[in-house]
Amino acid sequence: MKTVKIAALVLLVSIVSAFTLVKSDLGGYQIGDVATDFSLQNVDTKKVSLSDFKDAKGFIVVFTCNHCPYAKAYEERIMALDKKYKKLGYPVVAINPNNPAVQPDDSFEMMQKRAKEKGYTFPYLFDEGQKIYPQYGATKTPHVYILEKTKAGNVVRYIGAIDDNYSDEAAVKTKYVENAVDALLKNQDVPVKTTKAIGCSIKA
């Protein structure tokens, strides 16, 4: 009987691990997955985790960087998102996923400089060793993950672009991120859950 139990356990473990493997092969989170927390160094040299934000209702996690023209084009809009939504419970948490050995403009020192020059009001974290972005499945900068804090953890509710026009903010028709957070704040379903945008591939 005991061996049967052990055999069943082994089977269960192998099934579960097989699923985990399949999941990572698909490249990161899908809508509804629970996102991992992390402890990454902020530009003020302090470590930041999602669990530090006791009062947050969720997060606007943005994989972004210094060098990418698309990230630069969206920089002001990312700052505006934090200004608007931090007080409503959805702060921006920015993460630079790039390896500075490949992209020197994205070094920690350059991040500190950029954050100071522009007066970032949100943490700008360094994914040292490039370990967190593959778990999320980010492929480019900027790449947004909106998480909702639930009892089960931080659930992924939106993945994709900030809006539908990187080059001209005045010509934007759909603000994907704002629409998603607005819906979550009203306990509604996110209208558009995934979008795609051109971006700079992450330099690992």
Binding site: G160, D164, N165, Y166, K173, Y176, T195, K196
Partner: peptide
Amino acid sequence: PDANAWIE
């Protein structure tokens, strides 16, 4: 600029 409309 509306890349979401055409990337796929």
